[in-house]
Simulated scan of single mutants.
Amino acid sequence: MIETKTVHVRGIEYAITDSAGQGVPVMLVHGWPDDRTIWRHQQKYLSELGYRVISVDWAGHGDSSKPKDISRYHITELGLDTVFLLDALKIDKVHLIAHDYGATVSWETVANYPKRFQSFCAISVGHAVEILRDIAKGYLFDYLWLILHGMDKASKHWYLSNGAKRFKEKFASHPDANYILSKLLANKETLFWTLWERANPSYNVIYRHYLKGQKDKRITVPTFAIYSKDDEWMTEGQLARSSKYVSSTWRYECVEGGHWVQLQNPREINELLESWLSSQSVNNAKLKN
């Protein structure tokens, strides 16, 4: 039975959907401007295969708490929340599947807490250093939204002015565009629009990765990367090059679809995730023998 509940973690009420049971645990984490409903096809499919599937609303999103303290949305803080969520759910190890900003958080979390993860799957977004490398190589225009989203009030005005004309253009391929737009229109504060970028400005990312050594930490669990051919927000290079940070099994697939591929092409994504998780079960069985 799939149930919706809240889990108290470090002062935040996290809203989750949990299929519970004794199956191998799988955690699904979303990005911006989504919530856990973006995983509805995968939640159902993987649950029916017997996995215990947990999809999470990040702090500041969906039905989870929305703290005013912007530092609470820092990647390292959210990574620690991920581990505490596992503790609260009494899960020792989990297969982590992440999209968009959820993947940004998860690249760092898996590197910092490898013993808590059976495997890692990143959809659309690669290691933060490779995104910075893209920008340095001249792809700044592709990432102008990073600057826009970090400007208090500016992004909301840009997206919603003129009858939300720009939002409708930029999110035309999002299957849940009307739902997202209604959510954004109902949100009177600007924090939701800017929290990821304001909490994790580029200079802080550079400091942590280059001066504090985060970029030298390897992903030591099996890692699967999925890129979609028509992604309007991210280049393929930043994800493909992320293999250099993985010292375990690496698998890479490029599929049909845009940035929200789990909604746009759910059948292929479901089958790829089934194949990936099944292969990890086989590998684990071999190791035990």
Rank of each mutant, 00 (worst) to 15 (best):
E3Q: 12
E3A: 06
T4P: 01
T4K: 15
V9A: 01
V9I: 15
I12C: 13
A15Y: 10
A20D: 02
G21C: 05
V26E: 02
V26R: 02
G31A: 07
W32E: 01
W39S: 06
K44Q: 14
E48W: 12
L49D: 09
L49M: 14
G50W: 08
V53L: 05
I54T: 03
V56C: 01
A59N: 04
G60F: 03
H61R: 04
H61L: 09
G62D: 07
G62C: 08
S65C: 02
S65E: 02
K66P: 07
K68N: 08
D69A: 13
I70V: 14
S71K: 14
Y73N: 07
H74D: 12
I75Y: 03
I75V: 14
E77W: 05
L78M: 15
L80Y: 07
L80P: 00
D81V: 02
D81K: 07
D81R: 09
T82M: 15
V83E: 06
V83Q: 05
L85N: 06
A88Y: 02
K90Q: 10
D92V: 03
A98E: 12
Y101C: 04
Y101G: 01
G102R: 02
S106R: 02
S106H: 02
V110G: 04
V110I: 07
N112I: 06
Y113G: 05
Y113M: 11
Q118N: 11
F120V: 11
C121T: 15
C121Q: 09
A122F: 09
H127S: 06
L132S: 10
L132V: 13
A136T: 00
Y139T: 03
Y143Q: 07
Y143F: 13
W145F: 15
W145P: 06
G150T: 10
K156Q: 14
Y159K: 00
L160S: 06
S161K: 11
N162G: 13
K165G: 10
R166F: 04
F167P: 00
F167C: 07
K168M: 04
E169C: 05
E169P: 04
E169F: 00
K170R: 15
K170N: 08
K170A: 08
F171H: 03
A172W: 01
P175R: 12
P175T: 08
D176V: 07
D176I: 07
Y179E: 11
K183T: 08
L184E: 04
L184C: 05
L184S: 00
W193G: 05
R198S: 13
R198H: 11
N200I: 03
Y203T: 06
I206W: 08
I206Q: 05
Y207K: 12
Y207F: 13
R208T: 09
G213L: 05
R218T: 01
I219H: 06
P222W: 10
P222C: 11
T223Y: 01
F224L: 05
F224K: 00
I226D: 01
Y227V: 08
K229M: 10
G237L: 03
Q238T: 12
A240I: 10
A240H: 13
E253K: 14
V255H: 03
E256C: 09
E256S: 13
H259A: 12
Q262H: 11
N265C: 04
P266W: 12
P266Y: 12
E268T: 15
E271N: 10
L272S: 07
L272C: 07
L273W: 03
E274H: 13
S275R: 12
W276M: 06
S281P: 00
S281H: 09
V282K: 05
K288D: 05
